[in-house]
């Protein structure tokens, strides 16, 4: 078996004295889509913050394509192919759509190519290229955010709750895009509250609660065994 794209080993993290991650182990094979599910406050976003370099763990390791990420800065990780779409609206509200897209070229793809890919996927963005991103609807903003994932051809894509605050129809549309990105061979870690939607596009699933991964496996297994946790029990 080849080296997994992401390997998290016994990861601990805390905010002040409150320990939030208590020994997380997670492996994503190259090219796979992993759905990470679990109740609110389980520590999923914290895990993305650590993988993306925004927060330091108290102990444990994260390996990206076999390389230990200790003390790596988020901007450096972004430049070597880790694309993180954080929770909430991840666009710059006071910049136009076009300017937002221009900034995506920091990840290594020329700005023209970013614009071209984004407008090809989401013609609606082309119509609104001069509009301030903050004045667009939530769905349009997430399209813009997804453009970065599409255009930058990342080695690993971290998606934290794309669906937050969106109508189910738009969520489905966004996950179409996720599926397309996956087909191009990008590995994805996808955090989601809409378990069914996420499981539809994923190869594997993991459930996180109380700062630990409590189950991993095929989407069907997880759905069958863990439905009480992921479909609402704890929240």
């Amino acid at each position: 078996m080849s080296i997994p794209i992401l390997e998290v080993v016994d990861l601990h993290a805390s905010y002040g004295r409150i320990e939030v991650l208590r020994g997380v182990d997670l492996t994503i094979p190259k090219g796979a889509v992993m759905a990470l599910l679990g109740p609110n406050g389980g520590g999923k976003s914290t895990l993305t913050k650590i993988i993306s370099g925004q927060k330091a763990p108290t102990s444990g390791h994260v390996h990206l394509a076999g390389v230990n990420l200790r003390d790596a800065a988020p901007e450096d990780l972004a430049r070597v192919g880790l694309c993180t779409v954080p929770e909430g609206r991840s666009v710059f509200p006071n910049l136009t759509v076009e300017e937002n897209l221009t900034l995506m070229s920091y990840a290594g793809v020329p700005a023209e190519a970013v614009l071209e890919t984004a407008f090809a996927y989401f013609p609606r963005l082309l119509e609104r290229r001069k509009q301030l991103a903050g004045t667009m609807s939530g769905g349009e903003q997430q399209m813009l955010a997804m453009s970065r994932a599409l255009a930058s051809d990342p080695a690993l894509l971290l998606l934290d709750e794309l669906s937050m605050g969106l109508a189910p129809l738009i969520v489905d549309e966004l996950y179409e895009t996720v599926a397309q990105i996956a087909q191009s061979g990008v590995s994805i870690l996808c955090i989601e509250q809409f378990a069914r939607t996420a499981l539809r596009v994923s190869d594997y699933a993991a459930v996180m609660t109380g700062g630990r991964i409590v189950a991993t496996g095929e989407p069907e297994e997880i759905m069958a065994t863990m439905s009480d946790v992921i479909l609402g029990g704890a929240a």
């Binding site: 901007e75 954080p86 991840s90």
Partner: peptide
Amino acid sequence: TRIGTAMRASVDNPELLKLFGGK
């Protein structure tokens, strides 16, 4: 210019700019 755009972006949200790969 991109760096100029990044200047305006970093006022809004420097953390996000880092995730974009900007400094």
